[in-house]
Simulated assay, not measured.
Amino acid sequence: MQTSNDSYKEASFPLSNRILRVLWGIVYQIFFRYSPRPFHGYRAFILRCFGATVGKGTHVYPGVKIWAPWMLELGDECGIASGAELYSQGKITIGYRAIISQGTYVCTGTHDYTKRGHPLYTKPIVIGDKVWLAAYCFIHPGVTIGQGAVIGARSVVTKDMPAWMVCAGHPCKPLKERVMENE
């Protein structure tokens, strides 16, 4: 979704969005960021107040940076570590029991550098059920990570990754099948 034609002359988002982000920034700094680590339900409540869809048993830690909660859909029992950043200019969907490790950057916005106005546009990101994004990954706009995939530390994911594969690298690529032991 393109949000503006000329990012040098125009605001990329409407005034209502910008006002809501200011309000979110204030609430984030005062009530979210410095909340006690075990208060996951409290942070889920705050996210819901700002339009996020948050499943049961979700663990969003206080040091997670979130650009726009109303663009988030968090599945049951997913976990997002402190230091992760959800740059949710577009929709981010995180599945059941998915894990987003510290330092990971999930980025839905980019610019079209082939056009004179360098317009901003967004593409949604989908992170499937039981995915693990290890520390300091970068997830590009428009990427879908299939169910059960593991993305290795510091990987740069520029295209969709298949389900139940261990993937890593810069650029990220599938390396081997993810096999789960029976418990």
Rank of each mutant, 00 (worst) to 15 (best):
F138G: 07
I99L: 12
M71Y: 13
G95C: 10
G117W: 05
I151G: 02
C137W: 04
S101R: 07
A135Q: 07
T158I: 15
A84K: 00
Q147W: 12
V150W: 03
A81R: 14
T108W: 00
G83Q: 07
C137G: 00
P124H: 04
L120S: 09
W70Q: 06
K159T: 15
I100M: 03
I99G: 12
G109K: 04
G148W: 01
L86F: 09
D160T: 14
M165T: 11
Y113G: 13
Y96L: 11
K115R: 15
K123T: 02
G95M: 10
C167D: 07
V156T: 13
G146F: 06
I139S: 05
G148Q: 09
Y113S: 15
V166F: 12
G79W: 14
A81K: 14
Y136I: 00
V126D: 04
V131Y: 04
M161W: 02
G146D: 00
K123I: 09
T93I: 15
G152W: 05
I80D: 06
G79Y: 11
G146A: 11
A98Y: 02
P69H: 05
G90F: 11
G128L: 10
K159I: 04
R116F: 11
T110C: 04
G109W: 04
C78Q: 00
V126A: 01
L86Q: 08
G83T: 10
A84D: 00
P119K: 08
Y136V: 05
G169N: 05
F138L: 08
R116I: 15
I94C: 01
A134F: 12
C107K: 10
C107I: 14
I99P: 00
T93S: 15
P141S: 12
S82C: 06
D129G: 09
W132K: 05
I151D: 03
F138Q: 06
G128F: 03
C167H: 06
S82Q: 05
I94N: 04
T110F: 04
Y136D: 14
E77N: 14
D76W: 09
I145D: 01
T108R: 04
E77I: 00
T93N: 10
T144Y: 04
I145W: 06
K159V: 06
S88D: 06
I92G: 02
I99V: 11
I99E: 05
V166I: 15
H118D: 15
W70M: 04
I125D: 03
Y121L: 01
I94Y: 04
R154Y: 13
V131I: 11
K123P: 00
A168F: 04
A149L: 09
K115Q: 13
T144D: 02
P141I: 10
I99K: 12
K130F: 13
W70N: 06
S82L: 03
T158N: 14
Q147L: 14
V166C: 15
I80R: 07
G142T: 05
I100L: 03
P162E: 12
Y136E: 15
G79H: 09
T93L: 08
R116N: 13
R97F: 08
C107G: 13
I99W: 11
Y121D: 05
D160L: 07
P141M: 05
G75W: 03
A163V: 10
T104A: 13
Y136K: 14
G79V: 06
G146Q: 02
Y87G: 05
K159A: 14
P119M: 10
P119C: 08
V106I: 15
C107V: 15
